[in-house]
């Protein structure tokens, strides 16, 4: 992992900085605080002390205030996370789908417990609360990407990819009305009004299989 330098993060990114500041009204400069933190964290996998000073100065708040905001949110990291940040949901619906066992398997596989990063900077493991994937649990978030319905077999595949240094591609798990096969497509009639396809009220059950959808990562 590269050592952070003292060169200000936004020094050579004036356009990006301006674009972020311009999103908000003139009286709302402080709103840029979290977006600036996101930029730093996405690039450096954490928000270091020097970066925090820089951001505080940009938006015009004290470092203590900026630190207060940063520490409030669970997805901002003070220390660098590994190349693969493994976040496993442990809330009720995922628990009912095996979330606890998934976490234990991750502990065994990585030798880490929640909150730790390995010495090589490859994996970080973190227990997180509900990721909003309750119908497709258990869910494992790797960096920005959700991997849903992670079975024991699927987990082994994910680790094979990650250990080979590749970002695993998710299978887009679907369920309920997210399955396109039984979707009532509305088509435009010649007179411009909308009509429903004849099978519009089909409620045939989806079979729970997943659509492969690459490129989500």
């Amino acid at each position: 992992m590269d050592l952070p330098t003292l060169k200000p993060f936004f020094e050579d990114k004036p356009e990006l900085l301006q674009e972020i500041l311009d999103r908000y009204p003139p009286n709302g400069r402080r709103s840029a605080l979290m977006p600036l933190m996101w930029e730093v964290q996405r690039a450096e996998r954490h928000i270091g002390e020097a970066r925090l000073h820089e951001i505080a100065e940009i938006v015009g708040v004290t470092v203590t205030e900026a630190k207060g905001v940063m520490s409030f949110y669970s997805t901002f990291h003070e220390h660098p996370v590994g190349r693969f940040h493994l976040q496993v949901c442990r809330t009720l619906s995922c628990k009912l789908a095996g979330g606890d066992e998934l976490y234990r398997a991750l502990v065994e596989e990585t030798g880490l417990v929640s909150g730790e990063t390995d010495a090589e900077g490859t994996f970080s493991l973190q227990n997180v609360e509900c990721l909003g994937s309750c119908g497709t649990g258990p869910v494992l978030q790797v960096n920005d990407t959700y991997h849903e319905r992670v079975t024991r077999t699927r987990l082994a595949e994910l680790f094979a990819e990650m250990r080979a240094g590749r970002e695993p591609v998710p299978t887009r798990e679907r369920g309920g009305d997210n399955v396109s096969a039984d979707k009532a497509e509305r088509v435009d009639a010649p007179d411009g009004t909308s009509v429903d396809a004849p099978d519009g009220t089909s409620v045939d059950a989806p079979d729970g299989t997943s659509d492969e959808e690459g490129g989500v990562a």
Binding site: S93, L96, A97, C134, G135, T136, G137, R174, G175, G176, D177, N178, V179, A205, P206, G208
Partner: peptide, 10 residues
Amino acid sequence: LSGPVARPGV
């Protein structure tokens, strides 16, 4: 719908 059901989802 979530929990142990045959077809969870929205």
